[in-house]
Amino acid sequence: MGKAFGAVAGVGAVGSLVAMKKSWDPLPSVKAAGFTTLDMSIYPEGELITEKWRGKPIFVLKKTAAMIAKQTESQKARDIVVGDAHFMLAIGLCTHLGCIPAYIPAEESFLCACHGGQFNWAGEVTKVPPPRAFDIPPFKIEGTKLVLGEVGPEYQKMKDSGITL
């Protein structure tokens, strides 16, 4: 009797937990609005432009000739090349707890006001607490355009080599 009651109640409990979990999932409309196309030919050199994708800020920095010349190997691996232009493109949220770091052009670096984290112009961490460089959003290069939210071969390569999560 106890076992039978327990079994029936257990099935009901699991069923309702599944329903409750699913009700908290992001809605289909939220998931569907996840693509943004950027025209990469319009960005000025050395100036940080913030775009928006899935409600998150996207940092776009067209690198200057001086920056390209001094890139290290690890910085080259994060480099996004569209035509003959080089970009630092990343989700503009601190990888610690998600504040938006401010770009300081004079120092060519980012400072997060929340917990004091710092990143350089290539998006790498120069001061903790952030645990890793800026995350790079899924992207696909189409001519001079770039689609955020779609996975292209360049992005897949970065993901496979562990450059971004």
């Binding site: 908290w24 992001p26 809605l27 939220v30 996840g34 899935r54 409600g55 998150k56």
Partner: peptide
């Protein structure tokens, strides 16, 4: 985190 928020960022949900 996205499950708790019901979105990629804090929004209506």
């Amino acid at each position: 985190v996205e499950w708790i928020r019901g979105d990629y960022v804090p929004a209506q949900a």
